[in-house]
Design a protein around this nucleic acid. Structure first.
Lengths: 173, 173
DNA sequence: CGGAGCATTGACTTGTTTCAACCATAGTGG
DNA sequence: CCACTATGGTTGAAACAAGTCAATGCTCCG
């Protein structure tokens, strides 16, 4: 209902990858399945509406409409995941960081005109885990974007994008 | 029904990423949606069973069982996509190549004991696009795996894995 | 004040890419 | 039948982007 939830995968040796962010009205969880190889953590303060599993399973089985919207959500997430695969596989560090800022800007609060500002829901370490980079590289790319005037940074977490088109041009995808 | 289909995304500047491989009885396509930002190409000779879109849409709407299996397939693909995000983001080149071999080995023909052999459905260039690497790096990692005895290569495309456990150990995830 | 936690910056190293040469195979046409 | 080209793959050397290691800065908070 409010806040951001991150979906994580970890390797035995400790390397970690965030494989998805869930925003405001998204549904988190996997009906019909006992467990998955995924952990979900709140990235910010969040209000979550929880359903008991068997009740939910039953409701889904009985109402085709619900099942349909669940399918839609799954397909939306699938598209997002594949979009992100392109980012992880074929973007440079700079493009990756720009992509993340764009993702958050478009999914967070409603926008006003071309100028946008928002709070990062993630720490540098979490950003690194999302982008497949190190915190140092994330930090460097952020200052690079700042120095080139694409973004402004206030208090580490608050980002101001004077010109969204400029940011989108950094991604070019 | 037979063969391998690859799902591709391309960037305006030509960089390309393969975001999924579909094997034998998988369903390819997106019901209810006119178009998606994805192209599907046969990677090998393939036999495909095609349904007319409106017929399929209608059938799905009317049979909850079909809708359910479609949901299952979507969730399966979502898991696979996220698994691959971990590979793209946090694995080294060597681990990536090993992961691909493992993926193909486990999805291709049924297996015999620990020794496995199969034909690569992808060219070096396609492998590179799947793993987010260059063809040169792919080639180098393959020879590295060959020289270390984890795999044998016959005629460029045919791979023999003497010991599956050994291959899995290269991935460690 | 002083320590803990997070972020930034710098110097250096390394893995992967880039650029280029080369090899093998198959097909084509003189 | 043999050059000749096209295609796909391998290999080497140099360049570069990102990672590693280490020092420092900034805030919050007890």
């Amino acid at each position: 209902m409010r806040g951001v939830v991150k979906l994580c995968k970890v390797m035995p040796d400790g390397r970690q990858q965030i494989v998805g962010l869930q925003f405001a009205p998204d549904f988190v969880g996997r009906p019909f399945v006992r467990e998955s190889m995924l952990s979900a953590q709140a990235a910010t303060d969040a209000e979550i509406c929880v359903f008991p599993r068997d009740l939910l399973d039953r409701m889904i089985s009985e109402t085709p409409k619900l099942q349909r919207s669940l399918l839609d959500q799954a397909l939306k997430e699938l598209d997002a995941a594949r979009e992100w695969m392109l980012t992880l596989g074929r973007h440079t560090a700079e493009e990756k960081v720009a992509s993340l800022l764009h993702l958050i800007a478009t999914h967070a609060e409603p926008q006003t005109a071309t100028t946008t500002s928002f709070d990062l829901p993630l720490s540098r370490a979490e950003i690194a885990d999302f982008l497949g980079l190190t915190i140092e590289t994330v930090s460097r790319q952020l200052t690079k974007l700042r120095k080139s005037g694409v973004i402004r940074i206030e208090n580490f977490r608050h980002i101001i994008v004077p010109d969204m088109d400029e940011l989108e041009r950094m991604i070019s995808a």
